[in-house]
Amino acid sequence: MVLNNDAGKQRWFPVYTNPRAEKKAYASLISKGVEAYLPLQKSLKQWSDRKKWVEEPLLKSYLFVHIAENQQAEVLMTKGVARFIYFSGRISAMPDKQIEDLKLLLASSLELEVTEEHLQPGEKIRIKAGPLKGLAGEMIAYRSQKQLLLRLESLGCSIIVNMAASFVNRA
C-alpha cells in the first residue's frame, strides 16, 4: 500500500465565486483562517456626477485558496464560493510560481487586461527587460508591438500585457 504524502500539503487552488461576490467570499475565507488571494487592480470608474478609483478583481469570479486537500469542504461551505475549478476531471491545483508571477504582474506598473478567448499555445518566452524581467510564459499572439498575450493554463485564460516586444526573448 502506498500512502499519499501530499494529502496534508498545502497547494493553491482556483475557486469560482458567485457573480460579483469575490470580495465577500475572500473576506469570509480570511475570517475562517483560510489563506486566500484575490488579485485586484485599480480602475477609474465614471458615474454621472463623479469619477472614482475602485479596486476590482482582475479575474472576474475567481480567487485562490492555499489549502490542503482535506480543507476543500470548508472552502465550499463559505458564503460566496460556488465551486472549485476542474481540469481533466480533477480539481485544478496551481504551482506556487504561477501565483507569485500573478502577484508580480499586479505589482508592476503595466496595464493588464484579461481575456477568456480560447487561444492556441505558441512559443515559450522569457521577458528580458523591464519590471517583469525573468518571467517565463507562453506567447499566444501579438495584438500590437506593445501588447503581448501570456497564457496561464491552470485558469484557462490569458493575460494581455502591455510591453514592448523587444523586451521578450524565445526561451
Rank of each mutant, 00 (worst) to 15 (best):
S88V: 12
K9F: 12
L112C: 05
G122W: 10
Q147A: 15
P39R: 09
K32Y: 06
L38W: 08
I85D: 05
I160N: 07
G156S: 10
G8A: 11
S28M: 14
M94T: 01
L152P: 02
S158H: 02
L148M: 08
H118M: 08
S43E: 13
S31Q: 13
K103W: 10
G134A: 15
I125F: 05
F87V: 12
K42P: 07
F13N: 03
L102N: 03
V168C: 12
E69Y: 14
A73M: 15
Y26A: 07
A25Y: 02
S108D: 03
V81H: 12
P14I: 01
V65D: 00
E138N: 12
K32S: 11
K45E: 07
Y37A: 02
L63S: 04
L102P: 00
L155Q: 08
C157Q: 07
S108V: 05
F13L: 14
Y62Q: 10
L38Q: 04
L110M: 04
K128Q: 14
G156L: 14
N5R: 15
D101S: 03
Q72P: 10
V2R: 14
L152Q: 10
W47M: 05
L3D: 15
Q72R: 15
F64E: 02
K32W: 10
A136H: 07
V161I: 04
P131Y: 06
L135M: 14
L63H: 02
I140V: 14
E69W: 13
F84S: 08
I160M: 13
I160E: 07
S158N: 01
A107S: 09
P131I: 06
L58G: 02
G80K: 09
L106P: 06
S88G: 07
T17H: 10
R20G: 05
K51Y: 13
M139H: 15
F87H: 13
Q98K: 09
K32D: 03
A73W: 15
P57M: 10
V81P: 02
V2T: 15
Y86A: 04
Q46F: 13
V75Y: 07
Y62V: 01
K23L: 08
Q46E: 09
A7S: 15
E111I: 14
G156P: 04
R90W: 06
M139V: 08
R50C: 04
L58H: 00
F87I: 08
Q46L: 13
W12A: 09
V34E: 08
K23S: 15
I160D: 02
L110P: 00
Q41I: 14
M1P: 11
I140P: 00
Q41L: 03
S43D: 12
T17S: 07
L105K: 04
V65Y: 00
D6V: 14
K146P: 03
